[in-house]
Design a protein around this nucleic acid. Structure first.
Lengths: 146, 146
DNA sequence: ATAATATACTATAAAAAGGTAGCATTTTAT
DNA sequence: ATAAAATGCTACCTTTTTATAGTATATTAT
C-alpha cells in the first residue's frame, strides 16, 4: 500500500491532533513532535485547512484545530482529499478503459478485495481513532512512537 | 490504490504476455500494443528479466518470453519486486516504529483490511489470469482495451 | 504602540520518477 | 560475410514530488 509521503504526513498530523487533548496545535509544535520538515508541514497545514479538516488561527497563541467533529472525518476522506477522488478506485492493471461495461481481467476480483480496504478506511473516523487510543493507552506504554 | 506508473506498466506487460499465445514478444511489438513509451518499456523489460519473470532473447527473432510457468508468478510477486518487499506491508500512518510490539492505533484494523487485498494478489497467478481471459473472451468482446 | 508569536505566500532548490536518444552488442536469415 | 533485427547500456532531459528560505501578514499579551 503506497501513499505519497505527503498523504502519510497528513494522516500522521491529523491522527496526532485527534488523540492529544490540546486546545491548539501550532505548526512548530507539530513539527517538533512529528519530525516533519518545518516549512513543508506548514504548507501542508494550510492545505489541510483549505480542505476543511482543520481551522487555522493566526497570530500569537494561534495554531490549528479541527474544524469539525472528529466523528465526521474518516480516513478515506483524507486520503481522497490528498490523492484525488479516484485514488482508491483505479484499475490494478492501469487500464484507463477498464470500466463497468468493459472490465479488465482482474476487475471483479480486484474490486472485491479493494472494497474491503476502503470499507475499513470509510468506517474509521478520527473519533474512533481517539477512542481506540484512549483505551489502549492504559495497557500499552507507547502506541505512537515518535 | 496507488501503484507507481512503472509497476502498472509491469503488470500490464506481463498480463498481456500471459494472455496472448505468441511464442515471442519483442519490445517493439509490446510497445505498439500497449502504448508504453518505447525506451522506457525496453528498460522495464530488461529489469523484469533481471528479476526473473521473463527471459530475454537477443538477436534477430529475439524478444521476451516468460521464464517460468505462469502458475508460479502471482500479482504480489510482481508488485513487491517492483515496489520493494515492504510495499504492501507499510503502516497506514507512516510510522516507522509501528511494529508488532508497538502497534500504532490503526494497526489491527488496517492489517486485517489490507491482508484481504494481499491475499487476492497472492492467490491470483498469471495462469489464473490467462484462464479467466480465455473463458471471458467468448462473452465480452474486448476485455483488455488498448 | 510594540514586540512576540503565529500563519500565509512566493520563489527556489533538491531528489525521485518518468521519459528520450543514440550507440553498442548479440544473433540469425540470407 | 553481412545486413537485419533484436536486446543492453549510458547519458541526458523533463516532470513531479519533497524540502528550504525568506518575507509578508495577522493577532495578542504586555
Amino acid at each position: 500500500m503506497i501513499l505519497s509521503k505527503t498523504t502519510e504526513y497528513a494522516l500522521n498530523v491529523l491522527a496526532f491532533m485527534a488523540t492529544r487533548n490540546k486546545e491548539m496545535y501550532p505548526a512548530d509544535y507539530l513539527c517538533k513532535e512529528l519530525k516533519i520538515p518545518r516549512q513543508y508541514l506548514k504548507r501542508l497545514l494550510t492545505d489541510l485547512s483549505k480542505k476543511g479538516f482543520i481551522t487555522s488561527i493566526r497570530g500569537r497563541n494561534g495554531g490549528f484545530i479541527f474544524s469539525r467533529d472528529l466523528s465526521t472525518i474518516n480516513f478515506l476522506h483524507v486520503i481522497e482529499a490528498m490523492e484525488g477522488p479516484e485514488a482508491m478506485n483505479t484499475c490494478l492493471l492501469g487500464f484507463t478503459a477498464c470500466i463497468v461495461d468493459h472490465p479488465c481481467v482482474m476487475h471483479d476480483l480486484w474490486t472485491k478485495a479493494r472494497s474491503k480496504m476502503t470499507e475499513t478506511l470509510t468506517n474509521t473516523s478520527f473519533a474512533d481513532l481517539k477512542n481506540k487510543y484512549d483505551k489502549d493507552k492504559k495497557s500499552i506504554a507507547q502506541i505512537i512512537i515518535h
